[in-house]
Simulated assay, not measured.
Amino acid sequence: MVTDDRKKEFYEALLEKDSAYEGLFFVGVKSTGIFCRPTCPARKPKFENCEFYHTAEEALLASFRPCKRCTPLSHPNQVSELVQILVQAVEENPEKKWREQDFKELAVDESTARRQFKKRFGMTFVQYARARRMGLAMKEIRSGKPVIDAQLSSGYESGSGFRDAFSKIMRDAPASIQEDHSLKAFWIDTRVGPMIAIADEAALFLLEFVDRRGLEKEVEVLRRKTRSAIIPGKTGPIESIERELDLYFKGELTEFHTPVRLIGTPFQLKVWDKLKEIPSGETRSYTDVARDIGQPTAVRAVARANGANQLALVIPCHRVILSDGSTGGYGGGTVRKKWLLELESKSVCESK
C-alpha cells in the first residue's frame, strides 16, 4: 500500500515525467480506467483521480488496464515479441481463462511464456491474465454501481461479456440475482493489498485478499453452501470490518468484534475457535494447535483446516507457524504473513 507521503512524491514525479521512478510505481487513473508509467506522455490527471501501485499486478487487480501510449508492461526494457503477443491477446479478451490449447493456437510455448513473464513482471502469464480478469469482475464490487452502469463502463455493449466476467467471481448472472436471497460483496483497500468482504445484514461470511489463489472457488463454494446470490453492496458487518481493518493496520486494534458466520466441519470449527484464542503478537505451531484441541496426532488435519479459513485476519491463521520457528505458508502470501506478524508484534509492544 502506498503511503500518503509517497503518493505526493509519486504525483510530483508523474508531473515531471521523472525517469528515475521507472519501475518504482504505476499510476491508475480513475477517470479513464487505465494505468501508466511515471513518464507517460499523456495529459496528466488531477491528483484526486490518481491511485498509485508498486506493481503492475496491483494495478490490474484494481481493474485498471494498461495504457496504450506508454505501454507500462513493456518498459523500461523492451520485452520479447512473445510477451507482446500474449499481452495483446489478454486485452482482446480479458475475461478469458487460459488453457493449454489457447497457447497452442497462438503457437506459443506455455513454459516459455511462464518464464518470460516471471522474469519481466515478477508473475507468470497465468497470474497476469487472472489479475486482469479478476480486476474486471471486481470492478462493479469496488464501485457499487448498478449492474447496467457497471456493464457499460466495463465496455461490454451487448452485456454477454460482462455477464461472463461477472460470473467468473459470482457464478451467477446479474439478471438472475434475487435480492431476498443474497449476500453483499464489497472491495476494501488495505495497506497490504485489496480485500473482498462478503456478508449479509447479520454477519461476515468471507474476508480474503483479492490475489489469494483459489479465491474464485472459495466464493463459489460459499454461494453454493448458502444458496445465495452474491451481489455488490455494503451491509452493517461490512461497514464494521472496514472500520476495524483501518484501526488494525494503524496498529490500534488487536481483536476484531465484527459478527461472523463460520461455515465448516465440526473439526474445522474447533480449529478456528482455537486460532481466535492466539493473542495478537504471539504465534503457535500446528503441533501446538493440534495438542490444544485435544488431538495431538492431527497436525496435518489442523494445517488443512488452517488453510480452509475464509476470514483472513479475523480468524488469525497467519499466527500459526512451523515447529522450527519458520513462517510456513499462507494463503495471502508468505511476505504478507511476515508483515502482519511484525505489525502485530510492534503494536503489542507499543501498547505496553
Rank of each mutant, 00 (worst) to 15 (best):
residue 301 A to K: 15
residue 37 R to W: 07
residue 246 D to K: 15
residue 252 E to M: 05
residue 45 P to S: 00
residue 38 P to N: 07
residue 237 P to V: 00
residue 139 K to R: 15
residue 69 R to A: 06
residue 341 L to F: 11
residue 202 A to M: 02
residue 271 V to S: 11
residue 150 A to S: 14
residue 186 F to E: 03
residue 308 A to D: 07
residue 237 P to E: 00
residue 90 V to F: 01
residue 199 A to C: 10
residue 116 Q to M: 01
residue 70 C to W: 10
residue 265 T to V: 04
residue 184 K to I: 05
residue 10 F to E: 06
residue 231 I to T: 15
residue 292 D to T: 08
residue 177 I to E: 00
residue 99 R to S: 10
residue 212 R to L: 01
residue 329 G to C: 09
residue 296 P to C: 02
residue 20 A to S: 15
residue 245 L to Y: 11
residue 192 V to A: 08
residue 137 A to N: 01
residue 223 R to N: 03
residue 108 V to F: 03
residue 97 K to A: 11
residue 18 D to R: 12
residue 164 D to G: 02
residue 33 G to K: 00
residue 100 E to S: 13
residue 279 P to E: 05
residue 269 L to K: 15
residue 177 I to P: 14
residue 65 R to E: 05
residue 147 V to T: 14
residue 8 K to D: 04
residue 240 S to F: 04
residue 23 G to Q: 03
residue 100 E to F: 12
residue 1 M to W: 09
residue 172 D to E: 02
residue 189 D to G: 04
residue 197 A to W: 02
residue 39 T to H: 14
residue 144 G to Q: 03
residue 254 T to H: 12
residue 300 R to S: 07
residue 246 D to V: 09
residue 198 I to G: 03
residue 111 S to I: 07
residue 331 G to M: 11
residue 330 Y to Q: 04
residue 227 R to Q: 11
residue 303 A to H: 03
residue 163 R to A: 10
residue 328 G to N: 02
residue 103 F to I: 06
residue 327 T to L: 13
residue 321 I to D: 11
residue 57 E to Y: 08
residue 255 E to P: 01
residue 40 C to D: 05
residue 176 S to V: 03
residue 75 H to W: 08
residue 309 N to S: 14
residue 351 S to V: 04
residue 271 V to Y: 10
residue 306 N to Q: 10
residue 161 G to V: 00
residue 94 P to C: 05
residue 251 G to H: 06
residue 260 V to T: 15
residue 330 Y to G: 04
residue 298 A to P: 04
residue 74 S to W: 07
residue 298 A to H: 12
residue 203 A to Q: 12
residue 42 A to L: 13
residue 89 A to R: 13
residue 323 S to E: 07
residue 44 K to M: 03
residue 126 V to H: 02
residue 11 Y to D: 04
residue 192 V to N: 14
residue 343 L to H: 10
residue 170 M to H: 10
residue 181 H to M: 09
residue 204 L to T: 12
residue 272 W to A: 09
residue 4 D to N: 14
residue 323 S to A: 15
residue 136 L to C: 09
residue 167 S to K: 14
residue 71 T to C: 05
residue 226 T to E: 07
residue 296 P to D: 01
residue 128 Y to K: 03
residue 248 Y to I: 09
residue 253 L to T: 06
residue 282 E to N: 13
residue 2 V to E: 05
residue 157 E to C: 06
residue 65 R to I: 02
residue 19 S to I: 05
residue 249 F to A: 11
residue 216 E to I: 00
residue 183 L to N: 04
residue 26 F to W: 14
residue 127 Q to M: 03
residue 302 V to K: 15
residue 274 K to P: 06
residue 252 E to L: 15
residue 44 K to W: 01
residue 338 K to A: 14
residue 22 E to Q: 12
residue 254 T to G: 09
residue 36 C to F: 03
residue 215 L to V: 03
residue 82 L to Y: 07
residue 170 M to L: 02
residue 71 T to L: 13
residue 312 A to G: 09
residue 346 K to G: 07
residue 108 V to G: 01
residue 135 G to V: 01
residue 192 V to C: 10
residue 203 A to G: 12
residue 209 F to Y: 08
residue 204 L to M: 09
residue 180 D to S: 08
residue 249 F to I: 06
residue 19 S to E: 12
residue 101 Q to S: 14
residue 17 K to N: 13
residue 268 Q to A: 13
residue 253 L to M: 05
residue 309 N to W: 06
residue 284 R to M: 09
residue 327 T to G: 08
residue 196 I to M: 07
residue 142 R to H: 13
residue 145 K to R: 09
residue 47 F to W: 05
residue 44 K to E: 03
residue 299 V to T: 14
residue 292 D to Y: 08
residue 310 Q to I: 11
